[in-house]
């Protein structure tokens, strides 16, 4: 069975700096993969390579066995990769349902008109803010803006969902809600790659983890095993503490 997403030796250089250094891993169908590591280790850049926000310098990325390396972001989106952004990016001139429709109209499964609107409302129900469909995005609370962005990503019915620190910045109550929400997506059998710092979330959500440090992959495996790996602990806490 082919992996949903497969990176082979993906590398990204910015001038002299190697942000992602020869990274390879796979994500299987219905798997939730955590991409973790200390700040500046290249997690978000890796996500940007998969979504096509940045072109790779070297290496290959494949979606269900078909190469997507070097394709523009829009092609990758149409082939079934959807994402949220590290800093929430909603469309400020539109209301909630229109924001979500943006994902439904041009994405992987394309809808238009009444069907797109119905679908957008349905997705808003999934993320739990169907009652705010007509609100303007400037009126939303922080977690609701995150929900809208998630709904926009889900609206195109992607093959794989990329979440870039989706839980960051939430207060404790919101965090519980947020983790529950992603749990539901996981139970629906979605394939997800998430870049995350919140340990509780990683433990309860991820089937497997890839750990990065200074652009390199330093560990990979089941979440339990990875989080008790001494090298991973060293990368997070620094050499002295190991």
């Amino acid at each position: 069975m082919t992996a949903v997403v497969k990176l082979s030796g993906a590398t990204k250089q910015f001038g002299g700096l190697v942000a992602v250094d020869n990274v390879s891993f796979e994500v299987q169908e219905h798997q939730v993969l955590g991409l973790i590591g200390p700040n500046g280790s290249g997690k978000s850049t890796t996500l940007n390579l998969i979504s096509g926000a940045l072109p790779v310098t070297d290496g290959d990325i494949a979606l269900r066995g078909r190469e997507i390396t070097g394709l523009p972001a829009r092609e990758i989106a149409r082939k079934g990769v959807a994402r949220t952004f590290q800093l929430v990016r909603l469309l400020p001139s539109m209301n909630v349902v229109e924001n979500v429709m943006a994902g439904a109209v041009f994405g992987h499964r394309r809808r238009w008109g009444a069907s797109a609107e119905r679908h957008a409302k349905h997705v808003l129900e999934t993320v739990g803010i169907a009652d705010k469909a007509r609100s303007h995005v400037s009126q939303l609370t922080y977690i609701d803006t995150k929900r809208v962005e998630l709904a926009r990503a889900l609206a195109g019915e992607p093959e794989v969902l990329l979440l870039d620190e989706w839980l960051a910045g939430l207060n404790p109550t919101e965090l519980t809600e947020g983790i529950d929400l992603i749990h539901r997506l996981r139970d629906e059998g979605r394939t997800i790659i998430l870049v995350e710092h919140v340990m509780d979330a990683i433990r309860s959500l991820c089937d497997a983890c890839v750990v990065m440090s200074s652009g390199k992959k330093i560990a990979e495996g089941s979440t339990e095993a990875v989080l008790s790996d001494p090298e991973v602990i060293r990368a997070y806490l620094g050499d002295d503490d190991a």
């Binding site: 979504s51 096509g52 926000a53 523009p72 972001a73 829009r74 092609e75 989106a77 149409r78 959807a82 994402r83 952004f85 990016r89 469309l91 400020p92 001139s93 539109m94 429709m101 943006a102 994902g103 109209v105 041009f106 994405g107 992987h108 238009w112 926009r152 195109g156």
Partner: peptide, 24 residues
């Protein structure tokens, strides 16, 4: 039309437009 909707999205945030699959 879809084209009109796409342009509004582009005007709001071109990066988002690209990532939802619009040929900007």
């Amino acid at each position: 039309s879809r084209l009109g909707f796409a342009l509004r999205i582009i005007g709001d945030d071109e990066d988002v437009a690209r990532h939802v699959g619009i040929n900007t």
